[in-house]
């Protein structure tokens, strides 16, 4: 086992100091060490998007990221978005538009959608579909997820 590396970062708004093995993935750190199980393992290869988190406001596959690279960064997981009032319309739209079935892809979808809306506040169907191309869903056929994100975009701009 490699020696631990001390890092400090902000996870869902809480400044956190951690000692992590250098080969550990960010996904393993979140799930196994911090108990943030909302971020899912779907493939471990950056192909499915179930493990999507925001690092300094930008979406990444946490399975591809080294946990040591959290050092000095701001990390937001689904647990952070769940208590973020500004993301209420987004989560609500996923519920009300039927964007959730088995729900396993959902946290990654919501986090990536947050990033898409931050980047394109008035996102239309094409931008949303392209934005979600790295998030696989086996249940819904995506249509209702895309509708949810577009609905959230509209709700967000109406609120502004």
């Amino acid at each position: 086992m490699s020696s631990l590396v001390e890092i400090s970062c902000v996870v869902n708004g809480t400044p956190t100091r951690l000692a992590v093995p250098p080969e550990t993935s960010a996904l393993a750190l979140l799930r196994d060490h911090l108990g943030l199980s909302g971020t899912k393992y779907g493939c471990g290869e950056g192909e499915c998007g179930a493990c999507t988190i925001l690092v300094d406001g930008v979406s990444v596959n946490s399975c591809l990221m080294f946990a040591v690279d959290f050092d000095g960064r701001t990390v937001t997981t689904i647990e952070g978005l769940a208590v973020d009032r500004a993301s209420d319309p987004l989560r609500q739209a996923f519920v009300e538009k039927g964007g959730v079935q088995c729900g396993f892809c959902t946290p990654g979808m919501v986090v990536q959608s947050r990033h898409v809306l931050d980047k394109h506040p008035n996102a239309g169907p094409d931008e949303v579909k392209r934005g979600l191309e790295g998030n696989l869903c086996r249940c819904t056929g995506y249509k209702k997820i895309v509708e949810a994100v577009i609905t959230a975009a509209a709700a967000q701009s109406a609120a502004e």
């Binding site: 950056g46 998007g49 999507t52 930008v58 979406s59 990444v60 596959n61 591809l64 990221m65 990536q112 990033h115 898409v116 392209r130 934005g131 191309e133 790295g134 998030n135």
Partner: peptide, 9 residues
């Protein structure tokens, strides 16, 4: 190239 998340990294 790949997906938005991978393009970000």
């Amino acid at each position: 190239f790949a997906s938005d998340q991978v393009r970000n990294m």
